[in-house]
C-alpha cells in the first residue's frame, strides 16, 4: 500500500472520528469537519461542472466546432447574474421561466401516463378467477380495497362520516401498515449507513495501521 493510500486512510479515520464526536456533544472538531465537508463538496461539484459540463456542452462546441447557436442559451444563462444587482434581479426570472414552462409542459403527458394511467391499470386486477389461489385472490382484493380506502382518507371534499367515515377509517389502517413498513425499512437503512463506517474503522483501518508497522 502506497504512502498516499495510507495517508488517505488515516485522514479519513480522523474525519470519521471528528464527526462521531458529535454523539458525545457538539464540539469544535465536529464543527470543523462539518464546515470542511461543505466547502470540499461544493468545490468538488464546481470542478465536475467545469470539466464535464461547461467544456463539453459549451466551450468545445462553440470554439472548436463553431456551433455558435449555443451562445443563445449561454446568453440567457448569463441572465442569472442579474441577481447580483437589485435593479437587474428580475432578469433571473427569464431562465427560470424557460425551465418551468418547458419542463411543466413536456412532463404533463408522460407523468400522467406513468403515475396515473399505468398505476390505475395495475389496480384493475382479477379479484377471483380460475387459477388464483385463495391467498392470491385475498391479496388482490386487499390491494383494491387498500388503494380505494386510502384515497378516500385523503379525500376531504366530503365529511368523514357514515360510510365515507368507515372507509376512511379502513384507509387509516392500511396507511399505518404502509408507514410501519416504511419505518422498519428506515431503521434498516440508517443502521446500514453506520455499518459502512464501522467496517471502515474496525476492519479496513486496522489493516492499514498494521501495514505501517
Amino acid at each position: 500500500m502506497g504512502f498516499w493510500s495510507v495517508l488517505g486512510t488515516l485522514v479519513a479515520a480522523v474525519f470519521t472520528l471528528a464527526i462521531f464526536s458529535f454523539l458525545y456533544k457538539d464540539n469544535p472538531f465536529y464543527k470543523a469537519a462539518e464546515h470542511i465537508m461543505i466547502g470540499v463538496s461544493v468545490g468538488y461539484g464546481l470542478a465536475q461542472l467545469y470539466h464535464l459540463g461547461f467544456k463539453p456542452y459549451l466551450w468545445n462546441p462553440v470554439f472548436k466546432e463553431a456551433q455558435y447557436e449555443l451562445l443563445i442559451p449561454a446568453a440567457i444563462g448569463m441572465l442569472y447574474f442579474g441577481f447580483l444587482h437589485p435593479k437587474t434581479r428580475w432578469l433571473i426570472r427569464i431562465p427560470i421561466a424557460l425551465f418551468m414552462g418547458i419542463g411543466s409542459g413536456f412532463s404533463i403527458a408522460p407523468s400522467m401516463q406513468a403515475a396515473i394511467y399505468t398505476q390505475l391499470q395495475a389496480t384493475i386486477i382479477p379479484l377471483w378467477q380460475h387459477g388464483l389461489t385463495f391467498g392470491e385472490a385475498l391479496s388482490n382484493i386487499l390491494i383494491v380495497v387498500g388503494v380505494f380506502t386510502a384515497i378516500i382518507y385523503f379525500f376531504f371534499s366530503w365529511k368523514h362520516k357514515g360510510v365515507i367515515g368507515g372507509l376512511a377509517k379502513a384507509g387509516i389502517y392500511f396507511l399505518m401498515i404502509g408507514f410501519g413498513a416504511s419505518f422498519g425499512l428506515t431503521v434498516m437503512g440508517r443502521i446500514s449507513l453506520l455499518i459502512g463506517r464501522v467496517i471502515f474503522l474496525f476492519q479496513d483501518l486496522p489493516k492499514v495501521i498494521i501495514g505501517i508497522f
Partner: peptide
Amino acid sequence: YDWIFMNVQVPLQATMFSLLAFYIT
C-alpha cells in the same frame, strides 16, 4: 482532487449520515 474526494469528502459525508442510526434507535 480525487484523493481529497475519496479521503475527505466521502468519509465525512458517509459518517455524517451514519449518525442517524443512533438517533433513530
